[in-house]
């Protein structure tokens, strides 16, 4: 496993590349070179690639279009065959039910509260332990890092049962702590922060220490301000994970006022509303709209984050 040595430099290199707008920032400028030999054969090939990509991306996004169109259809139209494309009598009724009869405000608030606390916890705790692992010497350090690495491979179902037993014994079923605490400091975040902080020059940190700054001051004033890119990555990936987290909330949020959005949608889609497609499609639109808006606004950081955690 070559991760530890090579990765520290990658997040920053990656950040520079991806922030510069897309994928084409190698040292040599390939674009002019290409332009020169753009003959008719080449441009025909390029047109073919564009066409293929366009078909592929349309197919990829079609389910979302279908979801959005369906959310404005009446139940009668959704059940009619052959299927219709555009809603014939567009209706907001499906959305109205979510906001009146079902407490979508509560579910939304629960999702936001859980996600915000999970993100803040990860940003703070993962960078603290990441700093200790990267820049301090202490007995047990290697063992701690080994445990973090092992935990990265543990499937969710392994800890699921004892975790539920624990939460029940602590009387935390259907509480915010049960939804938040298990995810408050993810091993992946520790790994990410440690790798980035290890790439910060020792001289910077030594200089602060020589100036008499304590570790806390060095951490807050020197290290944290340099950690913008990995913190953005960590924050976004944690938010995404928390917002879409499903199985654990489904098991521990047992009363309706603690449901998060995916839990509520899942329970309604198996309960008495199972065949109310319009309602379910509108619910799906409401669940994914915030995250899609966030993704489109911050897509650079999303993609940079995936590349940084993926490429080693």
């Amino acid at each position: 496993m070559t991760i530890p040595e090579t990765a520290p430099t990658i997040p920053r290199a990656q950040a520079e590349r991806t922030t510069a707008g897309g994928t084409q920032v190698p040292a040599s400028p390939p674009v002019p070179a290409r332009r020169r030999r753009t003959g008719p054969r080449l441009s025909a090939r390029r047109a073919l690639i564009y066409a293929a990509l366009l078909v592929a991306v349309t197919a990829t996004l079609l389910p979302f279009a279908w979801m959005l169109l369906g959310a404005f259809k009446t139940q009668g139209e959704l059940l009619r065959r052959p299927i219709t494309w555009w809603p014939e009598q567009p209706t907001l009724e499906n959305f109205v039910v979510w906001f009146t009869e079902l407490q979508i405000g509560t579910f939304f608030l629960n999702s936001v509260v859980v996600a915000v606390f999970t993100v803040l916890g990860n940003l703070l705790f993962c960078s603290m332990v990441g700093y200790a692992l990267a820049k301090m010497d202490f007995p047990g350090k290697r063992f701690l890092f080994l445990l973090v690495m092992v935990m990265l491979m543990v499937p969710g179902v392994v800890t699921f049962v004892p975790l539920f037993v624990l939460v029940s014994k602590l009387g935390m079923v259907s509480t915010y702590p049960a939804l938040i605490l298990p995810f408050l400091a993810a091993p992946m975040g520790v790994f990410l922060m440690r790798q980035f902080i290890a790439g910060i020059p020792d001289s910077l940190i030594e200089a602060a220490r020589i100036d008499g700054a304590g570790e806390l001051r060095t951490f807050l004033r020197i290290v944290m301000p340099l950690c913008g890119p990995p913190l953005a990555t960590l924050g976004i990936l944690t938010f995404l994970g928390s917002w879409n987290n499903f199985l654990w909330p489904l098991v521990v949020a047992q009363s309706e006022e603690m449901y998060t959005l995916p839990v509520a949608l899942s329970l309604y889609s198996t309960g008495q509303n199972a065949t109310d497609y319009g309602l379910l499609l509108a619910g799906s639109v409401l669940v994914i709209t915030p995250i899609i808006l966030l993704f489109v606004a911050l897509q650079k950081y999303f993609i940079q984050g995936v590349a940084a955690t993926g490429i080693k």
Binding site: T60, P63, F64, W66, M67, G70, L240, W243, N244, F246, L261, P262, L265, S266, S269, Y277, L280, L281, G283, S284, V285, V287, I288, I291, I292, F295, F302
Partner: peptide
């Protein structure tokens, strides 16, 4: 598709 909730996606 990566960023969207599996529950929502399953409905459609």
């Amino acid at each position: 598709p990566v960023v969207t909730s599996i529950v929502a996606v399953a409905v459609v």
